[in-house]
Design a protein around this nucleic acid. Structure first.
Length: 871
RNA sequence: GCGGACGUGGCGGAACCGGUAGACGCAAGGGACUUAAAAUCCCUCGGAGAAAUCCGUGCGGGUUCGACUCCCGCCGUCCGCACCA
């Protein structure tokens, strides 16, 4: 009997339509069942989905469908991270308005996502560029402002002089603007900031409780926040060396214990003391200017030589007024960290040591490894920065360095300079406040007004939203809002005088810092409805790329706290479970002349080591390059539309989760997709062939006799696949399903004329199989369910429960080792006790042979696992 | 430089808390069916050996009745941060 092939082109749209009409995936906030919120990081509407999206959303969809089947009221929404530069770039290049470009892209991508059969609640969809959304974001901004969580201060920014805009650090490549190619300048600009540093301590300590997050991400955040404990120490300047009006220099150190090893002070080129000194010293001014020019990009720093300039200023050592030290301006000291000034201890810090050697400064060893000989301990080319015992440090000598830290801190806190304590304990963070100003059009306007008389005036709430004007031009570089003839001119809400609107818009990371809250009540007038937020949050399972491990996830954690403190939320941690999925990667192909070729332009011949690639158009051999993330620049992309067109969404979904563990990279392969499609057809055939015999049969697992084999296979698979999905081990779940199909193949092909018990067991097994594949291949599952004549949707049915008696075997087979090497096995009743097992083992032929008539030295019996006989 | 993860067949990977290494898939080879092809089905598939058996989880040691798994030391790959005082 030939069965027709499963045709996803017909079936998939049919079921998608049926689900939509039944409104299966629309979630109500008034539902008594336990809630489960699964969310994938929402996409930027670039114009088309790629396999990264598909992998991400398929994982979320498996969880959503599984949890729904397990009886949860599941929230699984989708939206668009729709503000940002690409829309403006498109406007400049293609003369299309950012709004039009964005909404058209959204329409295309929404269709593409719908074709994947994702169980999303589209009734909650929004885009961050919807006025409705950014209106509420402006409300949040005003609340944050009122609460003191927003500040405006000048800071150094990367300024692109051609495009006339601020660039993020990631947008500066080798010191040049990524778009214009112009040399980026460092500028001081007044910028808006969110005071994320107010929460630094809490953001750090709360990580410990986030046990649903990968350790890796928690560690990255920990390092990013970068807490250190140290001491602020004020050093008196030697009067006749100091510039006019300067009396002291404050430094931050985490190693006050090394204070007797100090041999110089160093300050940043922008440090106030350096600036003052530069006023009277043109050479110093030139040196500082040179430092600024070189900039601070990571790549540059690696190669730049440590340089200093002796200002001639000297300071007095806090423990010895007779001891004075020189003050240098140094290119390696950062103004942004600590106080922008350090004391250099060459013996305990490699950088300081290099500096000291270069400028002939003293190197005094002050910490040595425990047990070393103080008389013989020397510092040559390597500083000693580990813990140890104090030497050459007067009253600290002999102490352990951590003890010396406390001693120095205690003494200096009590000592006074100019009427204040010399030192103060201080916890310092690497984390900086979050600069949210962007000199761009396509973003959420910052709702403030600048009045000459009143200063910064927030836009009154009743005047919100501040909407973006539509009539803007992108012909000239810079921010179109600045050039708009009328938009920025307003009356001051306070005094009524002529005033100017803020033309900066918010960083798009602001938009994505609370969208998951908005999904809980997406059409409310207020940013959130606390009851709804309380019901759904925190997000139970959040899934996305590891590239957001720091910024997006840290900003969102800040936002939750800020929203809590402004009365919008009742929690601090927005994401209970976090999963970071790997990328989709593919080989790269490069022609002789350096052109990158897409996989579609290449023909592969041979296999394994003999694989060669040829350009189809020319027949020329091309170089097979390394496997990399699919990207436009390397052209190693495969178009999801074409693949979905030819194989269907189920095949693609199945392939996306097969083989590679979800947290690792997935290599795209045509053979892999073909294999997934074969499996789709194989299930269809199995169900189809069995369907006539199974129609109208009531499912009933068999515990005894031949049909028990079927039932055991099905119920064991049910148990482990459920566990695998709970752990997001999709690749393992898929392997188990494959194995189940292998087990069911023969019995299901022989159902014609089978007895009632067998038919009932087969029906039960096939129903289980359909349930198991449903989260992965939802369309095929519906088609199969229909085929065997069951009512209703798989998508709306309960996850089956396994029969506990079927997943354990009466007889078990355990391996038997002799001296730790496997020599055979033993089949015995499961409940056999140790003595029985030992007796049975010793009677085995090969054991007798090994014993050779003697007694074993030892027999180790691990119940139901293994037996080891030591002879 | 600092921090972290990982290293298993031709390939992706499995192996739960230290207990049968290589499940499942891909590729490859052989066979059946077919006029032929596709599809499908069956068999083989870490290495050596005729077999018994021996060897085998990056390398070298160690702990253990037993190590892919734990400990020490190397080597390699990848990721994050990077002049943070």
């Amino acid at each position: 009997m030939a069965t027709e092939r499963y045709n996803p082109r017909v079936s998939e749209p049919r079921w998608q339509k049926a689900w939509e009409e039944a409104r299966l995936f629309e979630t109500s906030n008034d539902d008594g069942r336990p809630s489960y919120y699964v969310l994938e990081m929402f996409p930027y509407p670039s114009g088309r989905i790629h396999f990264g999206h598909i992998r991400n959303y398929t994982m979320g969809d498996v969880v959503a469908r599984y949890k729904r089947a397990k009886g949860f009221n599941v929230l699984h929404p989708m939206g668009w991270d729709a503000f940002g530069m690409p829309a403006e770039n498109a406007a400049m290049q293609n003369k299309v308005h950012p709004k039009q470009w964005t909404y058209e892209n959204i329409a295309v991508m929404r269709d593409q996502l719908k074709r994947m059969g994702l169980s999303l609640d589209w009734s909650r969809e929004f885009a961050t560029c919807d006025v409705d959304y950014y209106h509420r974001q402006q409300m949040l901004f005003l609340d944050f402002y009122e609460k003191g969580l927003v500040t405006r201060k000048t800071s150094k920014v990367n300024w692109d002089p051609v495009d006339q805009t601020v660039l993020a650090n990631e947008q500066v490549i080798d010191g040049r603007g990524w778009r214009s190619g112009a040399l980026v300048e460092q500028r001081e600009l007044a910028q808006w900031f969110f005071k994320i540093t107010d929460y630094a301590e809490d953001l750090l300590t709360a990580l410990d409780a986030l046990d649903g997050w990968p350790d890796k991400v928690r560690l990255m955040q920990r390092n990013w926040i970068g807490r250190s404990e140290g001491l602020l120490i004020r050093w008196a300047l030697v009067e006749d060396t100091a510039p006019e009006g300067e009396r002291e220099l404050e430094v931050y150190t985490t190693r006050p214990d090394t204070i007797f090893g100090a041999s110089f002070m160093a300050v940043a080129p922008d440090h106030p003391l350096a600036r003052k000194a530069a006023e009277r010293d043109p050479d110093l001014a030139a040196f500082a200017a040179e430092c600024r020019r070189v900039g601070t990009s990571a790549a540059v720093l690696e190669t730049v030589e440590k340089k200093g300039y002796d200002t001639g200023i000297r300071v007095r050592h806090p423990f010895d007024p007779e001891w004075t030290l020189p003050v240098y301006v140094a290119n390696f000291v950062l103004m942004e960290y600590g106080t922008g000034a350090i004391f250099g201890c060459p013996s305990g810090d490699q950088r300081d040591l290099d500096f000291a050697r270069k400028y002939g400064l003293p190197v005094i060893p002050v910490v040595m490894p425990e047990g070393a000989d103080p008389a013989a301990f020397r510092i040559e080319d390597e500083a000693y920065s580990d813990d140890g015992v104090m030497i050459n440090s007067r009253f600290l000598d002999g102490m352990f360095n951590t003890q010396a830290f406390e001693e120095v801190a205690d003494r200096l806190e009590k000592a006074e300079l100019h009427g204040r304590p010399v030192a103060q304990r201080k916890v310092n963070f690497r984390l900086r406040d979050w600069g949210i100003s962007r000199q761009r059009y396509w973003g959420c306007p910052i709702p403030v007004i600048h009045c000459e008389a009143c200063g910064v005036v927030p836009v009154p709430r009743e005047d919100l939203p501040v909407t973006l004007p539509d009539d803007v031009e992108f012909d000239t570089p810079g921010n179109p809002l600045d050039r708009h003839p009328t938009w920025r001119h307003v009356k001051c809400p306070k005094c009524g005088a002529d005033a100017l609107r803020e033309t900066d818009t918010m960083d798009t990371f602001v938009d994505s810092s609370w969208y998951f809250v908005r999904f809980t009540e997406p059409h409310a007038d207020t940013p959130t409805v606390r009851e709804a937020a309380k019901k759904w949050l925190p997000v139970d399972q959040y899934i996305g790329g590891v590239e957001h491990a720091i910024l997006h996830l840290l900003y969102s954690r800040f936002f939750a706290r800020a929203m809590r403190d402004t009365g919008h939320l009742d929690l601090a941690e927005p994401f209970k479970g976090l999963f970071t999925q790997g990328m989709v990667v593919h080989e790269t192909y490069r022609a002789r002349d350096g052109r990158w070729l897409t996989p579609a332009e290449v023909r592969i011949e041979g296999s394994d080591n003999g694989r060669r690639a040829f350009e189809i158009a020319t027949g020329e051999e091309v170089v097979i390059g390394p496997i990399e993330k699919m990207s436009k620049s390397k052209r190693n992309t495969v178009s999801p539309e074409e693949i979905v067109d030819s194989f269907g969404a189920d095949t693609v979904r199945w392939f996306m989760l097969s083989d590679s563990p979800p947290e690792r990279d997935l290599e795209w392969s045509d053979e892999g997709v073909a294999g997934a499609h074969r499996f789709v057809q194989r299930i269809w055939r199995l169900v189809n062939d069995a369907a006539p015999a199974l129609k109208g049969v009531a499912p009933r697992p068999a515990r005894e006799g031949a049909p028990a084999v079927i039932s055991k296979a099905a119920h064991k698979a049910l148990k482990v696949v459920s566990e695998d999905i709970e752990q997001l081990a999709f690749n393992r779940a898929i392997a188990r399903i494959h194995a189940l199909v292998n087990d069911l193949q023969a019995p299901c092909a022989a159902l014609a004329g089978a007895d009632a018990a067998t038919l009932a067991a087969a029906r039960d097994a096939v129903e289980i199989l359909i349930s198991l594949i449903a989260p992965f291949m939802p369309h095929l599952a519906e088609e199969c369910r229909e085929k065997i004549g069951a009512e209703g949707f798989v998508a709306a049915s309960r996850w089956p429960d396994y029969d506990a008696e079927l997943v354990v075997d009466d007889q078990i087979t355990v391996p038997v080792q002799i001296n730790g090497k496997r020599r055979g096995d033993l089949t015995i009743a499961r409940e056999a006790d140790q003595a029985q097992v030992e007796k049975a083992v010793l009677e085995l032929d090969f054991v007798q042979k090994a014993l050779n008539g003697g007694a074993p030295r030892k027999v180790i019996v691990v119940p139901q696992r293994i037996v080891n006989v030591v002879v």
